[in-house]
Amino acid sequence: MEEVPQDCPGTSSTQAGKGASCQGCPNQRLCASGAGAAPDPAIEEIKEKMRTVKHKILVLSGKGGVGKSTFSAHLAHGLAEDESKQVALLDIDICGPSIPKMMGLEGEQVHQSGSGWSPVYVEENLGVMSVGFLLGSLDDAVIWRGPKKNGMIKQFLRDVDWGEIDYLIVDTPPGTSDEHLSIVQYLSAAHIDGAVIITTPQEVSLQDVRKEINFCHKVKLPIIGVVENMSGFICPKCKNESQIFPPTTGGAEVMCQDLKVSLLGKVPLDPQIGKSCDKGQSFLTEVPDSPATLAYRNIIQRIQDFCDIHSSKEEKLISC
């Protein structure tokens, strides 16, 4: 994982890419290209495009394999169960686009109209966009450098005909790299509600999540909270719980207390989650009585509450 330098000045600083701590940083050239220069005109274009999107939520993780895309998919499914809400899921994991598979959309292609690219729809109120829809084959590797990745993210935000959306969920790759800087920069004028950060209980995962939280602070990205995934296994027969990934340092709960961020909840392991993702189905509807489903629903409700509270605060500020 590419680590944010300890004394990183932040992407919005005039010293971005120029400070002493920037030397050797893999993102130095990207940051320096925007420091002191005229703002990218795409930021205003994206701001205008995003006026029809009410809430924007980023899903982040410090390490790969912690279930970030799985959570993103089920967050989208859970929000879309309310048929009065329009939900969109944007996959910016350019090199590892797993969302099409998880949403049952493998092999689908993007259609273009006069108003831009059209998302691929799972339901009438749930649209998806991913680089996976643009590949010639499911086995094609995306071998792109940073600038091309950034251009693709810009195109997703500016050229997709999202329409009137209540929730836009952005599934990101692990780490704190080009894609993360780009999505925050391009949405900087459009307001991001915040980030949901996914971890597993063991210290090797929490170590990287601390860096992810530091990244959010550096780029002034609000943190909605942390989700501890794979948090124990509850036997479906005897109902006893086993710790498959022991929280040797106290897990996400202790980390959240130390860093003063919210713990949104813990999702236990359930083999059916993986099976549902492989089949492109919603685990929430396939296994409605699972303890993991209950955990998902509680977490989704907390995310909705966070977005509603922040919307109310913004409306009051505007009215003042």
Rank of each mutant, 00 (worst) to 15 (best):
V87Q: 14
V87T: 09
V87C: 10
V87P: 09
V87D: 10
A88K: 08
A88M: 15
A88G: 11
A88D: 01
A88Y: 05
A88W: 07
L89R: 03
L89K: 02
L90C: 09
L90V: 12
L90M: 15
L90P: 06
L90G: 06
L90R: 08
D91E: 10
D91K: 09
D91W: 05
D91M: 07
D91C: 05
I92N: 01
I92E: 00
I92A: 03
I92Q: 01
I92R: 00
I92Y: 00
D93P: 02
D93A: 13
D93N: 06
I94Y: 12
I94D: 07
I94T: 04
I94P: 11
C95H: 15
C95F: 10
C95A: 13
C95K: 06
C95L: 11
C95P: 00
G96L: 07
G96M: 10
G96Q: 12
G96E: 11
P97I: 01
P97V: 04
P97W: 05
P97Q: 04
P97E: 01
P97H: 01
P97G: 02
S98V: 12
S98Q: 14
S98E: 14
I99P: 12
I99E: 03
I99V: 15
I99W: 05
P100D: 05
P100G: 07
P100C: 11
K101E: 15
K101I: 09
K101S: 08
K101N: 14
K101C: 03
M102H: 01
M102E: 03
M102W: 02
M103T: 13
M103Y: 13
M103L: 09
M103C: 10
M103G: 07
M103N: 08
M103K: 05
M103D: 08
G104H: 04
G104A: 04
G104Q: 05
G104W: 04
L105G: 04
L105F: 02
E106W: 00
E106N: 03
E106P: 01
E106G: 12
E106H: 01
E106I: 07
E106R: 01
G107F: 02
G107D: 02
G107C: 06
G107P: 06
G107S: 08
G107Q: 08
E108G: 09
E108C: 11
E108Q: 15
E108W: 02
E108S: 14
Q109M: 07
Q109L: 08
Q109I: 05
Q109E: 14
V110G: 04
V110N: 07
V110C: 03
V110E: 10
V110I: 15
V110L: 15
V110A: 04
V110P: 04
H111R: 12
H111G: 01
H111W: 00
H111N: 07
H111C: 03
Q112K: 12
Q112D: 00
Q112E: 13
Q112Y: 09
Q112F: 13
Q112W: 08
Q112G: 09
Q112I: 14
S113L: 05
S113E: 14
S113T: 12
S113N: 09
S113M: 01
G114Q: 11
G114S: 13
G114A: 11
S115E: 15
S115D: 15
S115I: 07
G116F: 04
G116L: 01
G116W: 04
G116P: 14
G116T: 06
W117R: 14
W117T: 03
W117K: 14
W117Q: 08
W117E: 08
S118Q: 15
S118V: 11
S118C: 04
S118I: 12
S118N: 08
S118M: 13
S118F: 01
P119Y: 00
